[in-house]
């Protein structure tokens, strides 16, 4: 398994002021695959995605290993698609110039060649009349076109790995699907793997091959997307899926994960999910579970064999309704 990996992450830990936010993540990125890193605000998923490029914040301390180290090949072998398309483009240079500069930063090619690669990359993401559009400034692009230009910029040097950090969070469903379709096309066109950082389970379901579910900086469940989503084995994954409105009948009460994710530095003893977990037993409050092979995936849960399927009933609200 390790030999076929493009990138191997082992025991990745990222801390701020001694407080660990990413707490020992291990996973591989395989050639051509789409891997989702899914979790909620503060789970450490964006930090993890950016660490793959060596882009952790300056004040953070990181340990563990990411092999090979691609941070020196950023833009060439690994590239980032950030959430905010506006911030990724300089407002004072034409879009085509920015892509051409990205080409020349990693490849010794003529200006003309860089230019033609830039136009080709814009064309590949479906920007009409790319030759002319390449001369336009970002503010002359619509929001959707800017997002595409950012994807084109990341893909222009045909990297092995594209890391997309919540690329669709701010978009409505039509635009979301369009961006994800373009990402998939780019992946196919340049033969890249995609690491997709997201909190959207529908995006995970429709657009990824494997999924890494992260809770409080730790692996909760990791395996093939279709299998994990069809039959989650970790209670956190099961709760997340059960609470999606698409699985409930109209007007019914939604299953709920009670409580909120812990803030970094205020972790409970034992399993970080235990205070919210309907299956939690004594052992869960005492010791943090390690990821183990289970049913063709990795699961970090002491009680995974106790999880019923479907788990919907476990997450029905038990607290008294607030009625008068």
């Amino acid at each position: 398994m390790g030999s076929e990996a493009l990138l191997s992450v082992r025991d990745l830990r990222i801390a701020f002021d001694g407080t660990e936010v990413v707490r020992g993540l291990s996973f591989d990125v395989r050639p051509h695959e789409a891997l989702a890193i899914v979790g909620e605000s503060g789970a450490g998923k964006s930090l993890t995605g950016r660490a793959l490029l060596g882009m952790q914040p300056r004040e953070a301390t990181a340990s563990g290993s990411i092999r090979p180290d691609l941070s020196a090949h950023r833009g060439r072998r690994i590239a980032l698609i950030p959430q905010d398309a506006l911030s990724a483009l300089s407002p004072v240079h034409p879009v085509g110039d920015q892509l051409a500069a990205a080409v020349r930063s990693v490849a010794r090619v003529s200006r003309k060649e860089a230019r033609s690669r830039a136009v080709a990359a814009l064309d590949r993401v479906g920007i009409p009349d790319a030759t002319r559009r390449a001369r336009a400034y970002p503010h002359e692009f619509s929001g959707g076109m800017r997002q595409r230009a950012v994807i084109a910029m990341a893909a222009v040097n045909e990297p092995d790995i594209l890391v997309a950090d919540e690329p669709t969070t701010a978009l409505d469903k039509d635009h979301r699907d369009q961006v994800l379709r373009i990402l998939a096309e780019q992946r196919a066109a340049v033969g890249a793997a995609l690491v997709l950082v997201t909190h959207d389970m529908d995006v995970v379901r429709e657009h990824t091959d494997r999924v890494l579910v992260v809770y409080a900086g730790r692996l909760t469940e990791h395996g093939p997307t279709s299998e994990v989503l069809a039959r989650p084995r970790a209670p956190y994954t099961a709760g997340l899926l059960a609470s999606l409105p698409r699985h409930a009948s109209p007007g019914s009460r939604l299953p709920v994960l009670r409580g909120t994710p812990p803030a970094p530095g205020t972790l409970p003893p034992g399993c970080a999910f235990a205070p919210r977990c309907p299956l939690a037993a004594d052992v869960c409050h005492r010791s943090e579970p390690e990821p183990r092979q289970a049913d063709g995936r990795l699961v970090a849960c002491h009680r995974w064999t106790e999880l019923p399927h479907p788990a919907t009933d476990l997450f029905q609200e038990t607290e008294e309704r607030h009625s008068r």
């Binding site: 997340l240 609470s243 009460r253 939604l254 994710p261 609200e317 309704r321 607030h322």
Partner: peptide, 19 residues
């Protein structure tokens, strides 16, 4: 809102509407 939080807020809104 994060996915695990969204369902609880929707349930609350449904309760308030009913009550």
């Amino acid at each position: 809102l994060d996915p695990s939080i969204r369902a609880g807020v929707l349930n609350l809104l449904a309760d308030l509407r009913d009550d």
